[in-house]
């Protein structure tokens, strides 16, 4: 369909940009969705990423990038509304449901996602994954945390410190 020439700038065929993952997979997405990333926003505003160039993202692999873009595409319309003052409760509930579903993923994917959200500076995704990790570790004991995060076993000295801490703050372990 023909894009009408108009001045309001909010319609017409959406501008597309290309992102290239670390393993050289090319992703074509709407500029609005990619612009959720503070890092990409400036490049896109400068006109980058269009046509055949593509924006290389050497820190993000294709599996992670596709996941990130899934989030961006879903959240782009709400973000375009500027924090959604006119979004309906249904829309918000739908986004919330999507978010909950979205982070219900394998731990390793979650870590890659944290790093990607951080590198690309996608504010919403950063707080979403942070919240997920916080919920995951909230009730764990220090030893469980060490195991979950793959820390080496504590030295006898560290173990003594951990025990002393547990004695002092027993209530926090209940």
């Amino acid at each position: 369909m023909a894009a009408p020439e108009s001045g309001d700038g909010n319609n017409g065929a959406a501008r597309m940009v290309t992102l290239i993952s670390s393993d050289n997979t090319r992703f074509e997405v709407e500029a609005a969705a990619a612009s959720l990333s503070q890092t990409l926003q400036l490049t896109i505003l400068d006109g980058g990423g269009g046509g055949g160039d593509g924006i290389p993202l050497p820190n993000v692999d294709s599996a992670t990038l596709s996941k990130v873009l899934e989030y961006c595409i879903k959240h782009a319309p709400a973000a375009a509304n500027g924090g959604a003052p006119n979004a309906t409760a249904v829309d918000r509930a739908e986004l919330e449901r999507f978010d909950n579903e979205f982070v219900n993923i394998d731990q390793s994917v979650l870590y890659s996602l944290i790093m990607a959200a951080h590198n690309l500076e996608i504010e919403g995704l950063q707080s979403l994954v942070a919240k997920k990790v916080a919920d995951m570790i909230k009730g764990k004991s220090p030893m469980e945390i060490r195991r979950t995060l793959g820390f080496p076993d504590p030295t006898p000295e560290e173990q003594a410190e951990m025990n002393a801490h547990m004695l002092e703050y027993g209530w926090a372990y209940e």
Partner: peptide, 20 residues
């Protein structure tokens, strides 16, 4: 990132995590 995660935690968890 760690800080962002920790900021979401209640005081009780943080006290415990000082031992990690």
């Amino acid at each position: 990132i760690l800080t962002a995660v920790f900021l979401l935690l209640p005081v009780k968890s943080i006290l415990r995590f000082r031992a990690v």
